[in-house]
């Protein structure tokens, strides 16, 4: 078990491209941290720097109480699960799981016992003699997990481990991974571009964009108080409604609709989550609904308000009809951002 801390860790490629801008954060012992962001945001590079697969250009990386910038990946006491599983195709499941231990000169009997233990934990005991090509995607992912578990590392690293699985299996594996991590209590860093995975699995989420950390916080914090318009639009499906507004005489207006109170006169970006807008015949928002998405458990109304596109999340009982409706905003549900920088005010 270990804490991980990054102090101004930075990655610059030889061609001058800064993949990760100086980043500092600390991961507590046993914590499950998810790095999330769009492709190319530097989240994988960050993970690979922690793993030691990528050199750190600047700053210090500490795992446990050891600065590991120049330590070989094999000696960092970590285990990594890859997107494409990266199983050794010519080895049986048992050999795949035990390979790391064999390289550490652990006696064969001990390896067999540990492999058996990990296989039992992952329901793989029937498959130990098979080759990876004879397994399904979910089983291969489990073998990759087994390879990580068996080493008893102080840090798990996951690089988009579920993105090659179909949706149903992904949901199931998500729960399994989370449960396993809870049980083993191993500090984990998990990279994904899927905000649902991030929300459901993380103790804390680190949202990255263009090599920069946009926000670090619990899923609830990130969802309800996004630190920037980027986070607001990246986290949540459908994303937060972002409207252009202006504060004048203590009131925030979008078009001629008064939304909120604000003391300073200025232009603003107003963010409201779709589920924080409620249809209400006495509400002061006038929305022209043009399209309804039926999702079974709930419905999404897409429309316009004062010329701004707006999405409203309603229950399954809301009538399916387009046209003019009135709506209200839940109290304290409005986020305000600086329109130029996108930073939360």
């Amino acid at each position: 078990m270990a804490q991980v801390s990054l102090n101004n860790v930075r990655k610059v490629y030889p061609n001058g491209f800064e993949a990760v801008k100086p980043a500092s954060f600390r991961i507590e012992d046993g914590e499950f941290v998810v790095l999330v962001g769009p492709s190319g945001c530097g989240k994988s590079t960050m993970l690979r720097m922690i793993a030691g697969l990528e050199d750190i250009s600047d700053g210090a990386l500490t795992i446990g109480d050891r600065v590991v910038n120049d330590v070989d990946p094999a000696d960092r006491d970590i285990a990594m699960v890859f997107q494409n599983y990266a199983l050794y195709p010519h080895m049986t499941v048992a050999k795949n799981i035990g390979y790391g231990l064999k390289n550490r000169k652990i006696p064969a009997a001990d390896i067999a016992a540990k492999v058996q233990e990990a296989a039992t934990m992952l329901n793989l005991t029937d498959y130990l003699d098979r080759k990876p090509s004879q397994l399904s995607g979910g089983q291969r992912q489990r073998v990759a997990m087994g390879r990580a578990i068996v080493r008893d590392p102080s840090l798990f690293l996951f690089d988009e481990p579920l993105s090659n699985l179909d949706a149903k299996l992904r949901n199931q594996m998500r729960i399994e991974i989370k449960a396993l991590q809870r049980r083993l209590g191993v500090t984990s860093v998990y990279v994904t571009h899927d905000q649902v995975e991030a929300m459901t699995m993380a103790d804390r989420i680190i949202v990255m964009n263009a090599g920069r950390i946009e926000q670090i916080g619990t899923p609830a914090e990130v969802y309800h108080s996004p630190a920037s318009t980027f986070v607001a639009s990246f986290m949540g499906a459908p994303p937060m409604n972002l409207l252009t507004g202006r504060a004048e005489a203590g009131r925030v207006r979008v078009g001629n609709v008064m939304l909120h109170q604000h003391h300073e006169d200025r232009d603003l970006t107003v963010g409201i989550r779709p589920e924080d807008i409620i249809p209400d015949s006495h509400g002061h928002l006038e929305v022209e609904v043009t399209l309804i998405e039926e999702l079974g458990a709930h419905r999404l109304l897409h429309g316009q308000m004062q010329g701004h596109p707006l999405t409203i999340h309603v229950g399954k009982d809301h009538p399916v009809e387009t046209g003019h409706i009135r709506a209200a905003i839940k109290p304290n549900a409005v986020s305000l951002f600086d329109p130029a920088s996108g930073v939360r005010l």
Partner: peptide
């Protein structure tokens, strides 16, 4: 795939081991 090389590195396989074993 590059990932296989990286997995082997994390599994502690040096250059000769990687060549012979993988």
């Amino acid at each position: 795939p590059e990932e296989l090389v990286e997995a082997a590195r994390i599994d502690g396989a040096g250059p000769i081991k990687f060549f012979v074993d993988i």
